[in-house]
Design a protein around this nucleic acid. Structure first.
Length: 422
RNA sequence: GUGGUCGUAGCUCAAUUGGCUAGAGCAUCUGCUUGUGGAGCAGAAGGUUGUGGGAUCGUCCCCCAUCGACCACCCCA
């Protein structure tokens, strides 16, 4: 005998029992409904990708230390996708000539990172990815930011629950260039800036001095500022202003906002929870105009964001916005006075299902009273016994378990009652 | 990858601090109750105390390792 196999899921991943999955699906269903209203189409892909896909542009640390990468039996290096954007870019590049740009696409993939699990962070999570591909310019930026806001609102959040911080990678890299930083120094500076909020001013100043004698941020205005910086700044300000005019008042400029991925080229944004109990970043995104061109295709501008299910669920939890599920549960428990009635009950259930009823048929030999209890425990709202009497008379008694009320019905009336009660 | 807290029944927790057969509530199953309810009563089942070593006359309790969960870093969603 070998060791018994553990029933626990693999470290950092979750099992979804029906109640859990129902909750996930109901969260996703609302997002899908909103996205459909905005004309976004759902796509999907395999979680397996060639490892090279991530080596060019995803952040170095993620690729080196946080991916599941292995060699397959054909000596190919394979990575379990840590994020969806490179897959999207690959798919777009692959069919570049036949796709009608701009694309409004979304997906809800599971993505994988080899990390130490903790609050809001697991080794596998589901991440809504929303992208607008093939449109550059401020109107595309505004649409994506509006949609990000609308998705939270469609889940019940209000503007006071979150804040949208906005910045521009182009602005920062231009400023670094103006300050005389080379590409490596720029990257180091951006990483540093990303941590600024967590550092003391003295520590930040010292770390900055180690990279450059100049303060790149000082080139964002005044004498050192270039025409490119000026135009990017006004575009960013216009974006925030336009959002206000369109009813999104919780967007603010934040010159220290960076985001981790190296592929961002323009606007970047991040949504933060305003609740002091959960002050973390909820999700974010940005513009990645050069990613598609990596595949040798023509450049295609794109902007999008990714929203993880774990942080989103935490957000909904802290704001008491947890969606209720239940739309897919059975409506009717068909009880059988005797096991010998089961074949007839199954046939009756089939007929009810043909007419749209969601029916659960008892398979046990328990007494009818226990079957009623069973229906209550399963949360099935209606109970009908189907036995010799019902078969002989073509009538049933439909019991509403919440109230105890019983109604006598011809069997032909039952489907309409199920549709009415759904 | 670094540091910390914690692992007892399916779940939530006890166990007089190292000393009798590891207990209770909830949940499950059976009976009272063979054509319709959640209650009640009676009963049953459920444990190698995460796992493996060690120290001790003796361990759920102490030590080491390991696995897992949680928390803070790192990084990020």
């Amino acid at each position: 005998m070998s060791e018994p196999i553990s029933t626990e899921p693999y470290k950092g991943v979750r099992d979804f029992y029906p109640a859990d999955w129902e909750q996930m699906q109901s969260m996703f269903a609302r997002m899908r409904a909103t996205l459909a209203l905005w004309g976004y189409e759902e796509y999907n892909a395999s979680p397996l990708e060639r490892a090279e896909l991530y080596e060019a542009k995803t952040s170095e640390e993620i690729v080196n230390e946080q991916t599941y990468t292995f060699i397959d039996r054909g000596d190919r290096r394979v990575t379990l996708r840590p994020e969806m954007t490179p897959t999207l870019a690959r798919m777009v590049a692959n069919k570049r000539r036949e796709l009608a740009l701009p694309l409004r696409w979304f997906s809800i993939p599971n993505v994988f990172r080899y990390e130490r699990p903790q609050k809001g962070r697991l080794r596998e999570h589901y991440q809504l990815n929303v992208d607008l591909v093939g449109a550059s310019g401020i109107e595309a930026d505004i649409e994506i930011l509006s949609l990000a806001s609308e998705l939270l609102r469609s889940l019940g959040a209000t503007e006071s629950d979150f804040i949208i911080r906005v910045n521009s990678r182009a602005l920062l890299t231009n400023a670094c260039e103006a300050a005389g930083l080379n590409a490596d120094a720029t990257r180091a500076y951006l990483r540093l800036l990303d941590k600024k909020a967590k550092m003391t001013p003295e520590a930040f100043a010292a770390a900055q001095a180690a990279i450059t004698p100049n303060d790149p941020l000082s080139f964002l205005s005044g004498a050192g500022s270039s025409p490119e910086i000026a135009s990017e700044k006004s575009a960013l300000a216009n974006t925030v202003e336009a959002l206000k005019l369109r009813g999104i008042g919780n967007a603010v400029l934040d010159p220290t906002l960076i985001r981790g991925f190296d592929y961002y080229t323009g606007i970047v944004f991040e949504i933060f929870d305003t609740n002091p109990a959960n002050p973390r970043s909820l999700f974010g995104g940005g513009r990645f105009d050069k990613l598609v061109a990596l595949f040798g295709a023509d450049p295609v501008p794109a902007i999008g964001f990714g929203m993880g299910d774990v942080t989103l669920a935490d957000f909904l939890e802290t704001h008491k916005l947890v969606p209720s599920g239940g739309e897919r549960k059975p409506q009717l428990y068909l009880g059988t006075p005797s096991p010998s009635n089961i074949p007839a009950a199954q046939a009756f259930a089939s007929e009810l299902r043909r007419q749209g009823g969601r029916v659960f048929v008892n398979l046990s030999d328990r007494a009818l009273g226990d079957q009623v209890k069973d229906a209550v425990k399963r949360g099935i709202p209606l109970f009908v016994a189907y036995g010799a009497d019902e078969i002989a008379n073509n009538t049933v008694r439909m019991k509403i378990l919440a109230t105890g009320e019983e109604t006598a019905l011809a069997v032909t009336e039952l489907p309409a009652r199920l549709r009415a009660g759904s």
